[in-house]
Simulated assay, not measured.
Amino acid sequence: MGLYIVAMSALFFLAFAYFAVGQAAVSRNGTQTAADSAALAAARASRDQLHDDMLAALISGDESALQAILQRSGTDLRAACGQAYAFASANGAKVDGCDPVTGTPPGFKVRVTSRSSVGSSVVKDSENVYASAEATAVVEPRCAVDGLQGVLVQLTCDHHRVTVDPTAAGFVLDLSTFYAVHLSK
């Protein structure tokens, strides 16, 4: 009977320990989601800053300006990181760092920490442990300018021919045609 009690106690302890590991994994996954969404939000906000410059270059038909715009991202880091803070907060995390990634393609690296602890369990001090994660998102150009035909701008976007007429009635510039925003390593 005594051996049975010891064996059952050990199994219960083991079950609670596995539960603690599961709590930690759930917290880590939630925090990684917050980091991913924050990095994507910062990169998208940076991309969206190019809207007016892209529209002006399309309307003017300035081929060199279009090529230059396709190779850069926005410069207002405060606005881009502001979006990262908002998305991290909406996902239960706080931003520890939001830094631009230089090079090609440009983007943002965001580090976050969960606002909630892993939780209390049989593991000592687990209620004082907070998950952290980081993610990098980039703004990658999808298009190259092929030339102009009057007011029409000819581009190749993801290996497909795209013709843009910025003077057409109802024209709305959709930057997702020209840029991909995605997570990177």
Rank of each mutant, 00 (worst) to 15 (best):
M1Y: 14
L3C: 09
L3T: 09
A7I: 08
A10F: 10
F13V: 10
F16H: 03
Y18R: 09
F19I: 03
V21H: 00
G22R: 12
Q23E: 13
A25S: 15
V26P: 02
S27F: 06
T31V: 03
T33Y: 06
A35C: 01
A38T: 07
A43L: 12
A43K: 13
R47M: 15
R47W: 00
D52Q: 14
D52F: 08
D52P: 00
L55F: 12
A56S: 10
A57H: 07
E63L: 11
S64P: 04
A68W: 00
L70R: 13
R72Q: 12
S73N: 07
S73T: 14
G74D: 01
G74N: 08
L77Y: 10
A80C: 03
G82S: 01
Q83M: 12
Y85W: 06
F87P: 01
A88N: 05
A88L: 07
A88C: 10
A90E: 06
A90W: 04
N91A: 02
G92I: 01
G97H: 08
D99N: 09
D99A: 10
P100A: 09
V101A: 09
G103S: 12
T104F: 14
P105Q: 06
P106D: 10
F108Y: 14
V112R: 09
T113E: 10
S114R: 11
S114V: 01
S116Y: 11
S117L: 00
S117W: 02
G119I: 00
G119W: 11
S121F: 12
V122I: 15
V123I: 15
K124M: 01
D125P: 03
D125K: 13
D125H: 14
S126E: 03
S126Q: 10
N128I: 03
N128E: 05
Y130E: 08
Y130D: 02
A131S: 14
S132T: 15
S132R: 15
A135R: 04
T136C: 01
T136F: 00
A137K: 02
A137Y: 10
E140P: 05
P141F: 02
P141C: 05
C143S: 07
G150K: 06
L152E: 05
V153I: 10
Q154L: 12
L155A: 03
T156C: 04
H160P: 05
V162W: 03
T163Y: 00
D165R: 09
D165A: 12
A168F: 08
A169P: 13
A169N: 14
G170I: 02
G170R: 08
F171A: 02
V172Y: 07
T177Q: 15
Y179G: 04
Y179P: 06
V181S: 06
S184F: 05
S184M: 05
K185L: 11
